[in-house]
Design a protein around this nucleic acid. Sequence first.
DNA 1: AATATCCTCAACCGCCGTGAA
DNA 2: TTTCACGGCGGTTGAGGATAT
Length: 308
Amino acid sequence: MGHRCCTKQKVKRGLWSPEEDDKLIKHITEHGHGSWSSVPKLAGLHRCGKSCRLRWINYLRPDLKKGSFTAEEEQIIIDVHRMLGNRWAQIAKHLPGRTDNEVKNFWNSCIKKKLLSQGLDPKTHNLLSSRQRSSNKVACKYPSLSQQSSFTVFNIGSQARDTDNTVTMNAPVVTFPNNQTMAMQIPCSEPQNPNAQNLNDSTIYPYGSSPWKIHQILPGLGNMYENPCIWDANAIVETFEEPRVEGLQPPQQQQQEKEKIWETAEDKIEMDASLESGSFDLGLLESTLTSAAMYRDMSSMDDLGWNF
DNA sequence: AATATCCTCAACCGCCGTGAA
DNA sequence: TTTCACGGCGGTTGAGGATAT
């Protein structure tokens, strides 16, 4: 059964013809889309409004980025997915010009296989058990990541939404080889977006534009750090300053807020994320985690420079 | 060259949240 | 309070192209 708007009249389905595209583009550039349900009639299309919307958003929009995903985009997807799961629309927001559908397809057709070939569970980003690994030997068309077997020491936990709506998070663990130091990019204090008034605003630290400085991680076992990254545990990394933004709550208060949300992790952070209750701010989580994820700019694992 | 299998990705499906009536 | 229309989202499908046999 189609959508209600589609059942009212006969609508065409399937691939769009160039003529249909032209009609839709012409209508929207001249009049805007307004109510999508009225677009087909006004544009002279025998499609349902939802189909028009999808076609415009995913394919015809002028600001869409064409072409393959870059290595950097791919890493962003992996990093954000690690923290947000299959929230494609949220992930796509970190990739200007990319759509949720595109990101989802790329994930399912490529990244997922890469992670499996690395012995990582694409859902949790954790290492698969040896049994799971052996049953997941997948030919990876893109060998770059799978060749980085030495990075299996790098294991970040991630969230999984359980059926009872509890978000379970494994504490992120970055295991550094003993006696190694490592350059790591973490955020410095000043947000670049002058309009940002609120830490909850994820635009403060958009990928690629946030201020980072290189820190050195001491040898040993370090955990991804707290501030503004919310992980802690017993991190053996140096702290960095709280972002200074006008109108922010005092750090102490922020800390209390965070403590409401997060329970201290040892190996695992479990929190009651009853999303409907409103006690859990997904936006805050996301923006914070996104900031937290910035360490990924060591992303390019090739740049890490382990000295084995 | 023919056929089978795999892979990609555009499009659809169905559910959900929101706001208006 | 209920109903409905609508937009948005994530999961899934299937056509068609690419690759393997």
